[in-house]
């Protein structure tokens, strides 16, 4: 289990990096934290001819807050997000999702940009970012682009990034401080990719009705899924146990998660419904406390 040979560049600036991507395109692959790419290379399931290692680009490793929006550089490590008190306080869903990612050794090295670019439908971060309506800043020699989550995530392990494009930052809009959030998942072992999970963000009006809600599902299809029907049903109404049950049932309508060794499609659909119900219950509980 040793990787096949490859050429290697370690640019020191974004400009240098996109220059290399423009030059080599399809031949090369960006190496961020490497926590998903390197195992694949060790199995020789991935064998890029060239790696453009962006670990040396300091500007990509910064966490910034601008006009209330969170800007995560692509090379921000999971552990940085996990340890940030500011993120835990202002974007708690992000914090709650990150702690489910692998184990500490993985989070110390793994990056938010790498997680997005890898586009594993079982990965926590893309799901949480879908719930948060994050935006993705992309750069190439051809110029910048800003993508919504449903524009960047295409399908399993596939994004809309062109070979010459580099994901530089993730932008998360400000969150209403009264919002209740929950990230719930179930894996066969803690730290494994989830068999199913849900990210919920819900805001309640003074009269207890739902003023805003986002429900995103993990391991529910080829890319993160926003349960729009469930959101539609919840918005504007009282969020009691019955409403949560109805919304959870609606959330899994028409889903086609993949069967595998660890869970059949039927099992996963049922699990996603349970996860949605638990996440909603938890988030509503928090939102109720915050609204009070």
């Amino acid at each position: 289990m040793k990787p096949a040979p490859f050429d290697y560049d370690d640019p020191r600036s974004v400009d240098e990096a996109i220059g290399l991507l423009a030059r080599y395109g399809d031949e090369c692959k960006v190496l961020a934290g490497g926590q998903s790419l390197v195992p694949l290379m060790n199995f020789r399931l991935a064998r890029p001819g060239r790696l453009v290692d962006i670990n040396g680009i300091e500007s990509l490793g910064q966490v910034k807050v601008e006009n209330g929006r969170l800007l995560l550089g692509a090379m921000v490590r999971h552990a940085q997000v996990e340890r940030s008190n500011d993120i835990a306080a202002r974007w708690p869903l992000l914090h709650d999702a990150i702690v489910w990612v692998g184990h500490s050794q993985i989070r110390n090295r793994g990056t938010v940009g790498g997680s997005v670019a890898h586009a594993d439908p079982a990965a926590e971060l893309p799901c949480a970012l879908a719930a948060l309506d994050a935006k993705f800043h992309v750069l190439s020699r051809r110029g910048p682009r800003v993508l919504r989550w449903d524009q960047i995530f295409v399908s399993e392990f596939t994004t809309s990034l062109a070979p010459d494009e580099l994901l530089t930052a993730i932008e998360v809009p400000p969150q209403d401080p009264s919002t209740g959030v929950a990230f719930v998942e179930f894996a066969r072992r803690h730290g494994d990719f989830a068999l199913g999970g849900a990210a919920v963000s819900i805001t309640l009006a003074r009269n207890g009705t739902c003023s805003d809600v986002a429900v995103a599902l993990l391991s529910a299809g080829p890319r993160p899924v926003r349960a729009e029907e469930a959101e539609r049903r919840l918005k504007g109404g009282q969020v009691d146990e019955a409403a949560i049950k109805q919304a959870s049932a609606a959330a899994v309508q028409g889903l086609h998660p993949t069967s595998d060794l660890h869970g059949s499609r039927e099992y996963r659909v049922k699990l996603l419904q349970v996860m949605t119900e638990r996440a909603l219950t938890k988030a509503v509980h928090l939102a109720t406390r915050r609204a009070a």
Binding site: Y8, G34, Q35, V38, P39, N42, D53, A79, S104, Q105, I106, N108, R109
Partner: peptide
């Protein structure tokens, strides 16, 4: 910081 030495070059 603890890291996996099999996942780094």
């Amino acid at each position: 910081e603890p890291v996996r030495s099999c996942l780094m070059f």
